[in-house]
Design a protein around this nucleic acid. Structure first.
Lengths: 192, 192
DNA sequence: AAAGGACGTTGACCTGGATCAAGAAATTTA
DNA sequence: TAAATTTCTTGATCCAGGTCAACGTCCTTT
C-alpha cells in the first residue's frame, strides 16, 4: 500500500522502521473520482498530497473564465496549492481528478510534527522543491524561446504517457495554447 | 558587513552566536563590476550567491541568440543557476551584474557542511525555495492569462525600484516581450 | 440504443505583439 | 566635449497563434 510513496521518500532520505511507521501513520488515503475536487479555490489547502494512483491537475481560472493548468499530478508526484498551504490562506488554485485517483494526504500540523520528529524530512521536501523549481524555471524560459510546436513536442517527449491519458485540450491549457493550435500542430506533423 | 544577510537568515531561523560565526566564516565576499560575469554558461555553478549590494541578472541565450532573463537579483535576494549548482553540471544560465555589485558566495561543499552542522539551514533554504517556487508559478500563470500591458504594470507595481534601476529592455527580456512593446505600452499610458 | 456531453478537427478570419528599420536621446568613455 | 555606445522611440509591416463557428466522433449515462 505504501510502496510508491516510500520509494519516493527513499530517493532522497533513508528512514528507520520507526520513522517509516511514524510517517505512514500521518498519511490519510483519499479516493478521488474523475472530475471530483481535491481542493476548490477559496478553501484553504490543508494538505500536501501524494498521488498514489491516477492523474490530477491544479489550475486557476482567470478573469475571463479561462482555465490555466499550473501542474499535473501523476502517480509518484506531489500536488497542492503550495502558497495556500504555507500561508493558511484561501487557495487560488483548484485541484481535481482527470481520472479516478488515490492520494495520500498529510495535514499541515502533522507535517510540522514530522519535521520536528524526523528533521530529515526538511531535506526531503527541500529536494522535491528544488526539482519543481528548476522545472518551473525551464517552463518559463521555454515559453519565451520556443514556438507552440516546439513546446508541444517537448512536452510529449518529456511526458509520453500524458499524451495517452489526458485530453489534448488539457495539455493545451498547461502549455498556454488553444486546443485548435494543438490540433493543427498534430495535423501538420501527420502529413509529413 | 553581514547585516543584510543575517537579517535575511533571521526571517526564518534563529541562530546562536556560534552558529552565526560559523555561517559567516563560510561566506566569501565578491565584488562584481557592472557587465562582469558571476557565472558563465558552460561553467559549473559552484556557489549560492546572496546579493548584498547592486543588481544582477540570470539569463539564458536561446537558439536564435536571444537573451531571456530567468531572474533578477537585487540586494537581499539569492541568485544562482540552481540546477547546475545542485547537479554539478555545466550551467545553462549566465549571471552578470547590471550595476556594480557585491555578493556573498557559499561554496557547495561549505553549504553541505553548514547543513550538517546547523541543520536548521535546511529549513532556511526550504523557505527561500518555497517563496521562489510560488513566485515562478505565478509568473507562468500570469504569462498565460495576462496581456503584455498587464504583465508590465504588475511588474513595476511589484518591483517599483527596478523600473528606475535597470534598462527597460531588460524588463522586456524578463517578461518575454520585445523592447518596442514596452515602449509602446508606456506611450499609451502617458497619453491618458 | 438513444441522447447528451465531451472531445477533436477544420476553415475563415482576426489581432497582439514581433520584427525591421531608422533615428533621437541619453549615458559612458576617451 | 566629442565620439562611441547603449537605450528608447516611432512607424510600417508581418505573422503565429487566437477566436469563432460548424461539424463529426466518441464516450457516458440512462
Amino acid at each position: 500500500m505504501y510502496d510508491l510513496i516510500l520509494s519516493n521518500v527513499a530517493k532522497y532520505i533513508q528512514l528507520t522502521d520507526k520513522e517509516t511507521s511514524f510517517f505512514t501513520s500521518l498519511l490519510r488515503l483519499r479516493k478521488i473520482r474523475k472530475r471530483q475536487y481535491l481542493l476548490q479555490a477559496g478553501d484553504v489547502n490543508q494538505f500536501e498530497n501524494f498521488v498514489n494512483k491516477g492523474c490530477l491537475r491544479a489550475y486557476t481560472v482567470d478573469a475571463h473564465g479561462e482555465e490555466h493548468i499550473a501542474m499535473f499530478g501523476l502517480e509518484g508526484w506531489w500536488i497542492s496549492d503550495l502558497y495556500s498551504f504555507l500561508t493558511n490562506t484561501p487557495a487560488t488554485q483548484n485541484i481535481d481528478a482527470l481520472e479516478d485517483s488515490e492520494v495520500f494526504s498529510i495535514e499541515r500540523s502533522d507535517l510540522e510534527k514530522l519535521y520536528e520528529q524526523v528533521p530529515k524530512f526538511n531535506r526531503f521536501f527541500l529536494k522535491l522543491l528544488q526539482n519543481a523549481f528548476v522545472a518551473h524555471q525551464r517552463r518559463i524560459l521555454a515559453s519565451m524561446s520556443q514556438t507552440a510546436e516546439e513546446q508541444y513536442y517537448d512536452f510529449i517527449r518529456k511526458y509520453p504517457s500524458m499524451d495517452q491519458r489526458v485530453p489534448q485540450h488539457q495539455i493545451a491549457s498547461y502549455l498556454g495554447l488553444s486546443p485548435e493550435t494543438i490540433s493543427r500542430i498534430r495535423r501538420n506533423q501527420a502529413q509529413r
